[in-house]
């Protein structure tokens, strides 16, 4: 066991993945000597060489499309998209080519590739650097979409994603890159597409992922002081969604609030709310509420704190859920 930041945990996980399989390649802009703009790949080119940790020309569709070609020949490219807002030039290759390949080859072939995307806001960045693009990928059949919220998950989930024979969109909450936590090297991790109960509770379930898990735990801690017991679930996998863990929790608490930075309309929260409604309608004491980014383009950084869900907005939604 050791304590490290999420950034270091991802670096360590990638190093393990490169060690474990010579077919694993890292491909992205500035990931070589610089180690990526967030230093996630720091030192890896030095240790694994320029043929395996490859600085790419500055073209996202080119990176995704050529990685697809390498994956067709048995390589396992792990792509770094520099920032969330830069993935869109590569969107066609992801949704039209990568996502469909196993299906359109009638199961003959697959492209085992990982697209790492630092995502989310809260870092005071200029536009296109704080987006939450997850819903686009969750909406696309044929992709698996996961996101880590802490260093231990980061370390294990990136290795599991690289080992997956299906394409995985791997979302990294960039505002949590420098948060420290325990990484347990010794014990086996839970399955990649399994959700995790972060904190037990009985009055309502907070459902979050990525950057909002920490915020929800803070909200639950404050609520506890007010005598309310909130369960917090880290979804971890956005596609598929682990409904077993969710329904197990909400059967007990009978109230749920979904929290994400992404905008509300047709977001992951909408899907979770619909599925909980379909399965637990008669059991629930209140409708599933959503605390999300507003239906706006991501705003200028000086007002992003009003855009992003925070402890107060989460507790306000809990109040409304409990008062129902």
């Amino acid at each position: 066991m050791s304590t490290m930041t999420m950034a270091k945990a991802l670096n360590a996980g990638l190093r393990r993945a490169l060690d474990a399989n010579p077919k694993v390649l890292l491909f992205g802009e500035d990931i070589g000597k610089l180690g990526g703009v967030f230093r996630i790949t720091e030192g890896l080119q030095k240790d694994f060489g320029e043929e395996r940790v490859i600085d790419a020309p500055l073209a996202e569709s080119g990176i995704i499309g050529t990685s697809f070609g390498m994956a067709m020949r048995g390589y396992r490219p792990v792509i770094e998209i520099q920032f969330d807002g830069f993935v869109y030039p590569g969107f066609d290759q992801i949704v039209s080519q990568v996502a469909k390949f196993h299906n359109r080859t009638n199961g003959r072939s697959s492209v085992p590739m990982v697209v790492r995307i630092p995502y989310g806001g809260g870092i005071g960045a200029i536009e296109h650097h704080s987006e939450s693009p997850e819903a686009y990928f969750v909406h696309t059949a044929g992709l698996k979409v996961v996101t880590c919220s802490n260093p231990n998950d980061a370390y294990w989930m990136i290795q599991q994603a690289v080992a997956s024979d299906d394409p995985v969109i791997f979302l990294e909450p960039k505002r949590r890159y420098h948060d420290k936590g325990e990484v347990v090297h010794e014990s086996k991790p839970i399955a990649l597409h399994q959700a995790r109960i972060v904190r037990g509770g009985t009055d309502a379930t907070l459902i979050a992922y990525g950057p909002m898990v920490k915020t929800c735990v803070e909200a639950a801690t404050i609520a506890e002081e007010e005598g309310r017991s909130l369960e917090v679930i880290d979804l971890r996998s956005l596609s598929p969604i682990d409904m077993v863990t969710l329904t197990h929790s909400v059967r007990r608490t009978r109230r749920a609030v979904v929290v994400h930075e992404d905008v509300r309309t047709l977001g992951v929260g909408a899907e979770v709310a619909a599925r909980l409604g379909e399965e637990l309608f008669y059991l629930m004491e209140s409708p599933v509420l959503r605390v999300t980014g507003h239906d706006l383009p991501y705003p200028n950084s000086r007002v992003e704190s009003d855009f992003l869900p925070d402890v107060d907005r989460i507790l306000d939604a809990v109040d409304r859920s409990l008062a129902y």
Partner: peptide
């Protein structure tokens, strides 16, 4: 034109092989 990128990536894999 999407296949031109796949072809180029495949060629990069041939290099590595």
């Amino acid at each position: 034109g999407a296949q031109t990128l796949h072809a180029t990536g495949y060629a990069m894999a041939l290099q590595r092989d």
